[in-house]
C-alpha cells in the first residue's frame, strides 16, 4: 500500500517535471512548433515499433532457446564458453554493435534489424540461463524421481519456476531495444531517430523533442507493459511481486 503510494508520488514528481519542461518549452515557443510534426511522429512511431517488434521477437525466439541449451547438462562445457562470450558481448557498446552490423550488411533495414536483434539477444540469453540455473536442484530431482522425462521437467518444472527471471531479462532487453531503435536510424533503419538526429543537426529543438519525447515514453511504456506481463503471467507461488 505504502509502496504503491510512493510509486504514485514519484510518478507525480515525474509528471511535474514533464510539465515544467512543457512550461519552459511553451515559453520559448517550442511546443506549438512541435505540433507541426504530429503527422511525422505518428508515421515514425509506426516504423519505430515495427523495427522494435521484429528485432524483439527474433531476439526472444533465438535467445530463450539458446539460454535453455546453455543450461542442459550435455552442453555444459560449451555452455560455459558461450556464457563467457555472451558476457563479453554485453560489455560491447550498442553503437559499436550497430557499426559492426553495418560493416557486415551495409546501410539499410536488414543491418538495423540484425544489429538490434543482436543487442537485444544478449540479456535474454543471460537471464534465461540464470533463471534456469536458479531453479532449486531438489525440484528437478523430485520431478525426476516421479518419473518425468527431461522434456516434461523443462516445461512443467524448470520453465515455470524460471519464468520470472526470464521475463525480467526480456523486459530489460525490450526496453534497450526500443531505446536503441533511434540509433538504428543511423544505419538505415526508420523510426523516431530521424527526428532526433535531424533535429540535432539542424539545431531545431522542436523537431528534436518531437522525436525524443515519444522515444522516452515508448521505452517507459514497453518497460511497464512487460512488467505487467511479468506480474500477471508468472504463477503466484513463484512471483516475488505478488
Amino acid at each position: 500500500m505504502l509502496i504503491a503510494t510512493l510509486r504514485t508520488s514519484s510518478r507525480l514528481a515525474l509528471l511535474a517535471a514533464v510539465f515544467a519542461l512543457g512550461a519552459v518549452l511553451q515559453a520559448r515557443g517550442i511546443l506549438p512548433a512541435m505540433a507541426t510534426y504530429r503527422q511525422d511522429v505518428v508515421y515514425l512511431i509506426r516504423g519505430h515499433l515495427w523495427l522494435a517488434a521484429v528485432s524483439g521477437l527474433l531476439a526472444i525466439l533465438i535467445g530463450v532457446p539458446i539460454g535453455i541449451l546453455l543450461t542442459r547438462s550435455r552442453f555444459r562445457l560449451a555452455g560455459l564458453v558461450l556464457a563467457q562470450v555472451v558476457n563479453l558481448g554485453t560489455t560491447i557498446p550498442t553503437l559499436a554493435i550497430l557499426a559492426l552490423a553495418m560493416t557486415v550488411l551495409g546501410l539499410g533495414a536488414p543491418s538495423a534489424i540484425f544489429g538490434l536483434t543482436a543487442l537485444t539477444l544478449l540479456p535474454i540469453v543471460l537471464n534465461t540461463a540464470a533463471g534456469l540455473r536458479a531453479v532449486p536442484r531438489h525440484l528437478v530431482e523430485a520431478a525426476r524421481g516421479m518419473g518425468m522425462t527431461p522434456g516434461q521437467i523443462l516445461w512443467q518444472v524448470e520453465l515455470p519456476n524460471a519464468l520470472y527471471v526470464i521475463l525480467a531479462g526480456i523486459r530489460t532487453a525490450l526496453a534497450i531495444d526500443v531505446g536503441t531503435v533511434p540509433l538504428a536510424f543511423l544505419i538505415g533503419g526508420g523510426g523516431l531517430g530521424e527526428l532526433i538526429f535531424t533535429g540535432i543537426d539542424l539545431m531545431e529543438p522542436a523537431m528534436l523533442l518531437a522525436g525524443a519525447i515519444p522515444t522516452a515514453l515508448l521505452a517507459i511504456a514497453v518497460d511497464w507493459l512487460v512488467g505487467q506481463a511479468q506480474f500477471w503471467l508468472v504463477p503466484r507461488g513463484v512471483n516475488p511481486l505478488r
Partner: peptide, 18 residues
C-alpha cells in the same frame, strides 16, 4: 530505474533544450 529506462539519445534530446 525510470531514469535508466529513458533511451540515451532521447535523454540527450531532452537535455539539449534545457
Amino acid at each position: 530505474s525510470i531514469m535508466i529506462t529513458i533511451p540515451s539519445i532521447a535523454l540527450f534530446g531532452l537535455l539539449i533544450p534545457i
